[in-house]
């Protein structure tokens, strides 16, 4: 298969298991974001793909070839580090030309490629500047250009945008995604920023505790989170306990939700409902009854906190799509069966 395949990849540091038995396949040309809280193993996994750390188990295949034991410098990949790792003793142009020089490319070829890359990152004519004279965003682009100089098979980025301010970061996210699509290069980005992942990725890989919890498209990760961790980690959600009768029909806080059925044999389950999928109506009428405890009006959206069955449920809507409610008011909560995601235990 063309692309990257991880087969049971495991990394142990002494008694601590940083990455455990990871299975993942990344088709050629895909943009993957590895997302998770710090210490979840995402960076270790990236470093193993780069060859900077050796896996203690499993194999890594690139375009069908086992590269588990291939040293980093023979893997034909480009990597952008969190620190950027630009060489302080070289100019912008020399930094970008470094991999070309190492491969013994001629002086003319080097210059041509450097100019090409400088144009690509919108920094034409910056070749002779020392890297210390660049702004954060410019350094970012130089690091990207250097990593791409040899048109690698695999483009790896470790928290590449974390040093930038919020506005620049958002702009760079778009730029990076556009660049990747233009080049069609298989790209893996490690990040702890879910907005970043949602913006850029074809596939988001959510990791926790050294395991992949879910690998899917951003929209699927959001709409159909696999488990409570993913549901809670990506966006905000309402996690609600449900019980089912013998036919599988589920009830929430004692009210049956028409149309919601738990998988066969399951008596209890947690469901995830995104706040924007929670509809508030007048109490009664078959809805779940609750009391409004707080209303947060953010202008663009309104968050309504409702207490029902001893639990707090949050509903988000645009001001127009929602009836006027105030704290202390009784409301009814309507859950459409298609927005309730039954999570794995």
């Amino acid at each position: 298969m063309s692309g990257l395949v991880l087969n049971g990849v495991t990394k142990q540091f002494g008694t601590f298991t940083a990455v455990e038995n990871v299975q993942l396949s990344v088709p050629h040309g895909t943009f993957v974001c590895m997302l998770g809280p710090s210490g979840c193993g995402k960076t270790t996994l990236l470093r193993m793909i780069a060859g900077l750390d050796d896996p203690t188990g499993g194999t890594i295949l690139l375009d069908g070839e086992d590269i588990t034991k291939v040293p980093t410098h023979k893997r034909n990949l480009g990597m952008v580090f969190q620190s950027l790792a630009l060489f302080p003793h070289l100019s912008v142009g020399e930094n970008i030309a470094y991999p070309l020089r190492i491969r013994g490319k001629g002086r003319e070829d080097q210059k041509k490629r450097v100019d090409e890359l400088l144009a690509l990152i919108h920094l034409p004519g910056y070749g002779d500047r020392p890297v210390s004279k660049l702004s954060g965003g410019q350094r970012q682009r130089v690091a990207i250009a250097r990593a791409l100089a040899l048109s690698p098979k695999l483009f790896l980025l470790d928290e590449p945008l974390s040093a930038l301010d919020a506005k620049l970061r958002e702009a760079m996210q778009v730029e990076l995604r556009q660049l990747q699509q233009k080049l069609g290069i298989t790209t893996i980005v490690v990040t702890h920023d879910q907005r970043e992942a949602m913006t850029m990725a074809d596939t988001v890989v959510v990791m926790n505790g050294g395991h992949i919890r879910q690998a899917a498209s951003p929209i699927e990760i959001y709409r159909k989170p696999a488990d409570t961790f993913v549901a809670d980690f990506i966006g905000s959600t309402n996690l609600i306990e449900t019980t089912a009768d013998s036919s599988g029909a589920a009830t929430v806080f004692g009210h049956s939700v028409p149309g919601l059925v738990l998988p066969a044999g399951l008596q209890k389950a947690t469901i995830s409902v995104r706040p924007e999928d929670v509809h508030l109506t007048a109490p009664g009428n078959g809805a779940i009854n609750g009391t409004v405890t707080f209303v947060r009006d953010l202008g663009g959206t309104i968050e309504t906190f409702v207490e029902a069955g001893g639990k707090q449920i949050v509903a988000v809507s645009t001001p127009r799509a929602r009836p006027e409610v105030t704290a202390g008011q009784q409301v009814g909560i309507v859950l459409a069966p298609d927005v309730c995601v039954v999570l794995k235990q």
Binding site: L52, S83, P99
Partner: peptide, 28 residues
């Protein structure tokens, strides 16, 4: 910065080569 040497390796330098063309000049 240890990533300087790692960056050199990802860019095609063997560790020994990276020692000479990154570490030595960076510490000139």
């Amino acid at each position: 910065d240890p990533t300087l040497m790692e960056a050199a390796r990802t860019l095609g330098s063997s560790p020994v080569r990276a020692f000479f063309n990154v570490l030595v000049p960076a510490l000139r």
